[in-house]
Structures are given as structure tokens and as C-alpha cells.
């Protein structure tokens, strides 16, 4: 039970922050299928930083890890600029641009990782090794039955994500910027009439999406594999999109969706172990979260409503 919650959270929270990126972008009216590419590129820049500077820090230092998160956000945001440029400036179809950005990200990071490994480090490898992230336990609180698992052996990034999500909630729903952003997704003409540049709002939203997704990607690089390799593209971006749509483009329901994914996933692993089934059954168990989501979607999708101007290129002269 405890393991299920611990693993579930460490899977769900990065997913949530990626989905938050999706919310930013889509609430501002930009369909974002590029999250997968953002998270990969973000994780790439973060890992590159760690790989390049590993000799600067003493062994076991956690400083590179925190800096890696920072650089992952920068990298993700930088890469998102390209997407924003395509969608907003060059008026490309947003679905198309998203897919293109993903494909380019896989190609680019794959190429750069191998190239840098061979030319800088002289190794033939498509991976960047990262250190091991420490895991914290809060004494006292972790002794509470069941709930205590939340405070046991969590990754430092989980705290970061929780703080960020609270801040995002504030930013989206309590500030002028948040209101402009949401309005840009529902009624961009109104935003324009109010004297605010729709393009600027959307640009900012997409770049924030890139930063958040980059952070999420870096978290997965630390929690799942402790290295950066092409396997970072395991579909978390798409899953985050699913969670976001499932959460009706709102923060709290999206959180719920991410938790369902995470807990169902770790629960499935536990179940296989508990029933002493062969490891082959893990596959079957891993399908459970997705079946569950599909069923839930059937019941909850009726009331789903995407932002009204989602996917539309803003045209001033249109009514």
C-alpha cells in the first residue's frame, strides 16, 4: 500500500506539471501536442548540463540536480519558442506544428546526445548519466498510517511541483495575466479589444508550457532511469494531454486524473507482485489505468468543453 502511494506520486506529479503546461497553452488557445517534444528537450538540456559540469561538483552533491531542473525549464522554454513561432507567427496548423516539434525533438536530442558524447567525452553512447536523486522522509508525519506514505521517501522535485502547482493555480485564476490568458483561449477578440496583444499572451503561455514540460521531463529522467536516453520519449506528453482533456482543461480535475494514472499504475505493479504472478502479467496490469481512463471518459466526456478558440489562429478581422 505504502509503496503504491510512494511510486504513484512520483509518477503522477511530473505528469501533473506537464499537464499544467498543457493547460497553460490550451487555455490560451494553442492546441499543444508538442508536450512530448518539450519534455524531451527540457530533459536533454538539463542532463547535458549535468554531464558537462559533473566534474565541477564533489561526488554526491545535489547542487547539479537542482541546477538541472533550472536548465531543463530553460531548455524546454527555449524549445517552446520554436513551437510558438510556428503556431503564432508563422500561422502553421497547430496540430501539425505539434507533431513536427515532437519528431524534431526526438531527432535533435538523439543526434546531439550521440554527437556530444563522441566529440566531447569520447564515448559511443546515446545516454547522459545523471546522479541519483536523494529521497526524503519527514520524521513524525511519515508514521501516520496510510497518509504517512505521502511523506515517505519522496523526491525533492515533488515538493517543487506542489509549490509550483499552487502558484499556477494563483496565476491562472487570481491574476490579470491569468484572466487574459483564459480569455485569449475563449474569446481572443475581446482580449484584443481590451488592448492586449493576443499573440503576446499566447506566446508567453506556450513558453511557460515548455518550461513546465521541461521540468516534468527532467523529473522523469531522475525518477525513472537516472539517465537521459531516447527512452525519455515514452509517451508522458501524450498521457499528460489525455489527463488534461480528461480534467476538462481545469487544474484540480487534471490533478485527479494524474493521480488516477499514477496510483493505478503503481497499484498494478503491486498487484502483480502480491498475487505472485509471473512478470509477464505486469503488461496486462499496466493496461488497467488506460482501460480505466477510457471508461471514465465515456461517463464524463458529455460535459467536456474545450476552450472555444482552441486551435484557431487568431485573425483580427474575423468576427
Amino acid at each position: 500500500m505504502n509503496t503504491m502511494i510512494i511510486d504513484g506520486l512520483s509518477y503522477a506529479l511530473p505528469l501533473l506539471i506537464i499537464a499544467c503546461g498543457g493547460i497553460f497553452s490550451e487555455r490560451s488557445g494553442v492546441t499543444n501536442l508538442a508536450l512530448e517534444g518539450f519534455l524531451g528537450f527540457g530533459a536533454f538540456t538539463g542532463s547535458l548540463f549535468v554531464a558537462l559540469t559533473s566534474s565541477w561538483f564533489s561526488n554526491g552533491s545535489t547542487v547539479p540536480m537542482y541546477l538541472a531542473f533550472l536548465f531543463a525549464m530553460l531548455g524546454g522554454g527555449f524549445y517552446a519558442l520554436l513551437f510558438a513561432l510556428l503556431c503564432i507567427k508563422f500561422r502553421a496548423n497547430q496540430v501539425i506544428a505539434g507533431v513536427v516539434i515532437n519528431i524534431l525533438s526526438v531527432a535533435l536530442t538523439g543526434f546531439l546526445t550521440s554527437q556530444i558524447n563522441s566529440s566531447v567525452f569520447g564515448e559511443a553512447s546515446n545516454k547522459f548519466q545523471l546522479g541519483v536523486s536523494p529521497r526524503w522522509t519527514v520524521p513524525g508525519l511519515s508514521q501516520i498510517p496510510v497518509l504517512g506514505a505521502v511523506f515517505t521517501k519522496f523526491y525533492p522535485f515533488e515538493i517543487l511541483i506542489v509549490i509550483l502547482v499552487i502558484f499556477i493555480n494563483y496565476l491562472l485564476y487570481k491574476t490579470r495575466f491569468g484572466m487574459h490568458l483564459r480569455a485569449a483561449g475563449d474569446n481572443p477578440q475581446a482580449v484584443d479589444t481590451a488592448g492586449i496583444s493576443v499573440a503576446k499572451v499566447r506566446f508567453t503561455a506556450v513558453v511557460i508550457a515548455g518550461m513546465l514540460a521541461g521540468l516534468g521531463g527532467m523529473c522523469y529522467a531522475y525518477s525513472i532511469s537516472t539517465n537521459f536516453s531516447p527512452s525519455i520519449y515514452f509517451g508522458a506528453g501524450y498521457l499528460a494531454i489525455a489527463a488534461m482533456i480528461f480534467g476538462n482543461w481545469k487544474l484540480m480535475p487534471t490533478l485527479a486524473a494524474c493521480l488516477i494514472f499514477g496510483l493505478a499504475r503503481s497499484g498494478a505493479y503491486q498487484l502483480v507482485g502480491y498475487l505472485k504472478l509471473s512478470s509477464n502479467y505486469t503488461n496486462l496490469a499496466l493496461a488497467i489505468p488506460y482501460v480505466l481512463t477510457l471508461l471514465l471518459l465515456i461517463f464524463f466526456s458529455k460535459t467536456n468543453r474545450a476552450p472555444r478558440a482552441l486551435g484557431e489562429i487568431y485573425d483580427k478581422s474575423k468576427r
Binding site: 498521457l239 471518459l297 467536456n304
Partner: peptide, 18 residues
């Protein structure tokens, strides 16, 4: 059921894969 086709296809991808 108004299920977004992108999400349902992604879910089905995973289900079929596993």
C-alpha cells in the same frame, strides 16, 4: 459520448500495446 478522439486513440494505443 463526445470522447476526444486524440485521447481515446492514445488510450487504445497503450491498451493494445500492453
Amino acid at each position: 459520448f463526445n470522447v476526444n478522439e486524440v485521447v481515446s486513440s492514445i488510450m487504445l494505443n497503450y491498451i493494445i500495446q500492453y
